[in-house]
Design a protein around this nucleic acid. Structure first.
Lengths: 149, 149
DNA sequence: TGTTTATCCTACTAAATAGATAGGATAATA
DNA sequence: TATTATCCTATCTATTTAGTAGGATAAACA
């Protein structure tokens, strides 16, 4: 064990760079007028993101139906849907994975905890259920359009 | 990159085992009548936790002022405060670290994001501020006493 | 005083993951 | 056919998580 919470420098933050960069890229695309393709290089430069890393993120957003792409000159990525129609719940689940902090309270990725004999009497289960609901409330009430400044 | 969110088996859950086990142990201690010391081995067996791992967790909970301990025969760990006085915010910060998902919205562990020139105009910043507040609302309104079944 | 008991503490380890990077294949445009 | 930009697979390194090993310390008790 190294991390000790308060005592050491390292801190465990929960949002991955992948999600962070993905959200920034989506917001940037949403802020562009029209749906003309935007090149990876432009997004990467504007948002301070490693281009190669961003490449893989945009690719996964295309495969999951958020973005369209066009190859060759004048190509790039563009939003497929209206930003108002893109819920944060869906974006977060694709980029970050489950919204729940433990598998046993996940709506979309439910799994029984192997160490826990009874969910109903598990204190962690009940607390994390509340945390999940509070996060869901935020993600469900926000769309990509809300992220544009 | 391996994880692809929807496509692969691995899922990124956010609660560490350390926090999970720590919460279970605290709840178990809170459910005991009186403040007689409880041995690590007993907690580990009852909660299905590796004894050695739990040892390090309880140690850190003692060092951060949540638990007292007694060595030798009849020894063990015990709660120092009334479960009603132990806020989940404090427990979570000690076990898991920051409640915020990004350093730039953390109340207790604030740090500027190195890749972001301006927080006010950052879409991730604003979204994560809301998520942090919603989580804080849960943790602030719950004490260890609420976790006992 | 010596034995038992249980916490205390340091060090180590294996496996997984995050966050990239490299380099070429593919397709669209001009 | 040359250029451009996405597509795709493979690889890499540092860090973290979760857990183990083994002994030092201190308290109880005979």
């Amino acid at each position: 064990m190294v991390s000790e919470g308060l005592l050491f420098a390292y801190l465990r933050y929960m949002l991955s760079k992948k999600t962070k960069y993905g959200l920034k890229a989506l917001t940037y695309l949403a802020s562009q007028q029209g749906n003309t393709p935007v090149q990876i290089s432009g997004i990467a430069k504007h948002e301070n993101i490693s281009q190669k890393f961003l490449e893989s993120i945009l690719l996964s957003l295309r495969k999951t139906g958020f973005l369209g792409s066009k190859k060759g000159k004048g190509g790039g990525y563009y939003l497929i849907k209206d930003p108002k129609e893109i819920l944060m719940t869906d974006v977060m689940r694709v980029l970050e994975g489950p919204i729940a902090m433990v598998p046993c309270v996940s709506l979309n990725f439910y799994e029984k905890c192997d160490d826990c004999p009874d969910e109903a009497s598990c204190s962690v289960h009940r607390l994390m259920l509340e945390v999940r609901d509070s996060a869901l409330e935020v993600y469900r009430s926000r769309t990509l359009a809300d992220l544009i400044f």
